[in-house]
Design a protein around this nucleic acid. Structure first.
Lengths: 148, 148
DNA sequence: CGTGAGACCTGGACG
DNA sequence: CCGTCCAGGTCTCAC
């Protein structure tokens, strides 16, 4: 579906991932009545991750909140790393989440993206990731689950 | 029944008082079906205070919400001050709430309470408080009232 | 539309 | 080392 280079806020103490509106409305439409929903994904190891997905009126943006910080921590994600959201259609739909390290060129931290490089980059760096094809790790999903 | 030293959050903008689980379950048991109830107390002047009491699943804690901030404001409570919850059995049960200034020893806030006087004064220390034995002010209660 | 109040969330601390 | 508690935030909605 789409991928997103993580910003410092996405991996910081705000405990949320902002999903670009364009992608959010296309892939994770929110029924007007819903105050949010729970999305379940599977990662490369088959582990299931459930995130609360909702729209923040205050910032006019779509976000993943509850559960996100635990994912960042377990995968040791840092600003510049990229997360991938995919839908896999086997005999039943599944959502999966994957990630890859920021490309070698972009090395934020300190003063953040120096001259060249802004963000993502391309490519999939090389390999160092925790084992996975093309630098990506992945997972499957289970059906979206309506929240209260 | 019990007393609790107020934390900065208890007297701040969160508008709630966390009641330690141990005391909450012992003295203010919540019927499973209740989403909360209203507890009425009387203070040292005989004035009645009604607080909403409920359990927050998200933080696994018991809290007093509605009404609490007004009490903090009227009594000019500050972090470190202590609130007391008591049950008095006369010809009918009554709940009362009391408070006292933090003991002189513990003086948190930066420099606060400067020479001139900040706040209320002191009371506590000895007598000046708004009349009450041992630095405590008190109140009675009326029967718990089930909320919807 | 700004502000206060309440429900939800998370991390640190502790047993 | 892991589960529980609760102080401290964030967001949302009612007014």
């Amino acid at each position: 579906m789409f991928e997103k280079p993580l910003t410092p806020s996405d991996v910081g103490k705000l405990n949320r991932l902002v999903i670009p509106k364009q992608h959010a409305e296309k892939y994770f439409p929110l029924g007007g009545g819903d105050s949010g929903l729970l999305l379940s994904f599977e990662d490369e190891s088959g582990k299931s991750w459930r995130f609360r997905y909702s729209y923040w009126n205050s910032s006019q943006s779509y976000v993943l909140t509850k559960g996100w910080s635990r994912y960042v921590k377990e995968k040791r994600l840092d600003a510049g790393d990229v997360v991938l959201f995919e839908r896999r259609r086997s005999h039943t739909d599944r959502l999966f989440i994957g990630w890859r390290r920021r490309s070698a060129a972009a090395t934020p931290s300190a003063h953040d993206s120096g001259p060249g490089a802004a963000q993502v980059s391309g490519g999939a760096g090389e390999s160092s990731g925790s084992g996975s094809a093309g630098g990506w790790t992945r997972m499957f999903y289970s059906a979206p689950h309506h929240n209260k």
